[in-house]
Amino acid sequence: MNDYLYDGTYSSLLGLIYTLIKSKTIPNVIKREDEYISNLFMEPIYLKLENKELINSLKKEVSMLVLYTAYYIYLSNVNNKEMIIYGFIKNAIKYKNTVFYRRDIYVVSEAIRISNQVKGEAHRMKGFLRFKKMKNFYYATIEPTHNIIWIITRHFKDRLKDECWIIKDSKRGVYAIYDLKKVTYLQENDIIKLNLDLSDDETLFEDLWKTFFKTVAIKERENLKCQMNHAPKKYWNNMLEMEDL
């Protein structure tokens, strides 16, 4: 069994996994090349397989739902996610769409669980994200557990299509920039300096929001544990109304 490396993109991971499954090769481990810690005993194999034909033939064997599930796992922060995707796709080829009912198979149940976790965080973030109004655009900072910026931008593009906005994942140094036409993703190094001057009415509405948030709570029903269960503390940093708590 060998270690296999890929360049970090989803399509080359899929290409690699599909090649391994078709050639009946069982990998020891699959890792991004920049995350791989080399060891003395193993020479890793690096495959760059961003091959459209490969992906197309995989698409013929499994449904889009399977590929979406695999994509969500790919976005997760789980350590051995590549091996889970490998196991999941292998089972998906075998069982087709009934793979989703085969939770008796450990790797399948893990795959569904992790993908649901990523989807869940993406849904939460659609609510918890806060924009600040700058002079020229709306600006939000997020620090999600999973790499979900890629799957939440569509939501904001539909909603705020007539406003320019930027979402920054400060954990991963990724920016999603919407310019009224399309969303572009940039790395921290590619960004020219942003003008982060607040719009004139920003402090007024921030203050009104914090006021509303405090007023709407019913004192006789205080339940901080319940609050924390629904809005975990790890998100509070970027939730304006939690700042003074």
């Binding site: 849904h123 939460r124 659609k126 609510g127 918890f128 939501h155 539909d158 909603r159 705020l160 299509k161 007539d162 406003e163 509303f212 948030f213 709407v216 709570a217 019913i218 004192k219 029903r221 205080e222 339940n223 901080l224 544990k225 319940c226 609050q227 269960n229 629904h230 809005a231 939730m239 109304e241 939690m242 708590l245």
Partner: peptide, 30 residues
């Protein structure tokens, strides 16, 4: 409800935006 030509749309599943200190979901400006 879709965003035909303006601001906003509705999310079929609903979205909670924050939770007040009584543990209740805050979704709408009530």
């Amino acid at each position: 409800r879709r965003n035909s030509n303006g601001v906003g749309n509705a999310a079929y599943s609903g979205i909670c935006h924050t939770f007040s200190s009584d543990g209740r979901c805050v979704s709408l400006l009530k």
